[in-house]
Amino acid sequence: MALLTQLNDDLKTAMKAKNKIELNVVRSLKSAIMNEKIELGHDLNEDEEIAVVARGLKQRRESLDEFERAGRQDLIDETKAEITIVERYMPVQLTAAEVNDVVKQTAAEVGATSQADFGKLMGAVMPKVKGKADGKLVNEAVKKLLQN
């Protein structure tokens, strides 16, 4: 529940500062966590909270891609600011080199050597990097390793 407490504190701070973007982002994250809590019927543990925040981050990144394709600079700037705010609630993200190391180590553990082992390797890597690395980055690292 530490994340929910932090969100409540940040919500108050954003209200006092009259920071509309931060206020909207914090409210949406808090709402998403509360909705997930209601849906699951129990208080969320830290991993479940991070998963909710990661979903919010992924949605904003997908929106950013759409806005960039449409050339909507006003929405691009706002979405980038939102992404920066959401990232504050995520654990420290792994670098590409660290993701590659995890992928190589996991490939050795599960014996993945060819493209046919893609699903098996992804299934083994994702729980290890959950919340710490973007799925797209992991996907690219796995593809690169299995192509060699």
Rank of each mutant, 00 (worst) to 15 (best):
M1G: 13
L3W: 02
L7S: 03
N8T: 04
T13H: 04
A14I: 06
M15R: 09
A17Y: 01
E22G: 06
N24I: 05
S28R: 08
L29G: 03
K30G: 11
S31W: 05
M34C: 05
E36Q: 13
E36S: 14
K37C: 13
K37I: 12
I38Y: 10
I38Q: 14
E39H: 14
E39W: 10
L40S: 08
G41H: 11
E46Q: 13
E46C: 00
D47H: 11
E48D: 10
E49G: 09
E49L: 10
I50F: 07
I50N: 10
A51D: 15
A51H: 12
V52K: 00
V52C: 03
A54V: 13
R55C: 05
G56T: 02
K58S: 14
Q59N: 09
R61L: 15
S63Q: 12
D65V: 10
D65P: 02
E66D: 11
F67I: 05
R69V: 09
D74Y: 05
I76G: 13
A81H: 10
E82L: 04
I83H: 09
I83M: 09
I85A: 05
I85V: 14
V86W: 05
V86C: 05
V86R: 04
E87Q: 09
E87R: 12
R88W: 00
R88M: 06
Y89N: 14
P91I: 02
L94N: 01
L94A: 00
T95D: 01
A96N: 11
A97I: 02
A97R: 04
D101W: 00
V102F: 04
K104I: 08
E109C: 03
V110Q: 01
G111K: 03
G111M: 09
T113R: 12
T113A: 14
T113K: 15
S114V: 02
G119N: 15
G119A: 12
G119M: 08
K120H: 08
L121S: 10
L121A: 09
P127L: 01
P127Y: 07
V129R: 03
K132Y: 14
K132H: 13
G135Y: 06
G135M: 08
G135C: 03
K136D: 14
V138M: 01
N139K: 11
E140I: 07
A141M: 09
V142G: 12
V142C: 07
V142H: 03
V142S: 08
K144A: 15
L145P: 02
Q147L: 14
N148D: 15
